[in-house]
């Protein structure tokens, strides 16, 4: 499994919000998108409730 490391992670429980910063490798760059993927997809593993998260590339 390929991993990135979060350089700054914060969870604001009262607001129900997570903010994380990551150092992206060179080849990822601007075209990157972010998804939440459900772990066990079984029969329907393809259409997995995958949806983009607000993206802020800096």
């Amino acid at each position: 499994m390929r991993t990135l490391t979060s350089t700054n992670f914060s969870y604001q429980k009262e607001a129900g919000r997570v903010t994380l910063w990551v150092e992206l490798p060179e080849q990822v760059k601007e075209e990157s998108t972010f998804y939440l993927i459900k772990n066990v997809l079984a029969y329907c593993r393809r259409l997995n409730g995958k949806f983009p998260i607000n993206r802020k590339l800096k």
């Binding site: 499994m1 390929r2 991993t3 979060s6 080849q27 990822v28 939440l36 772990n39």
Partner: peptide, 20 residues
């Protein structure tokens, strides 16, 4: 989305998970 889900960074061909 009941249960566990993970954050995946992808550029369409390579997927990355994020260590915290």
């Amino acid at each position: 989305l009941e249960g566990a889900c993970q954050l995946i960074f992808t550029n369409g061909s390579k997927d990355y998970q994020c260590k915290i």
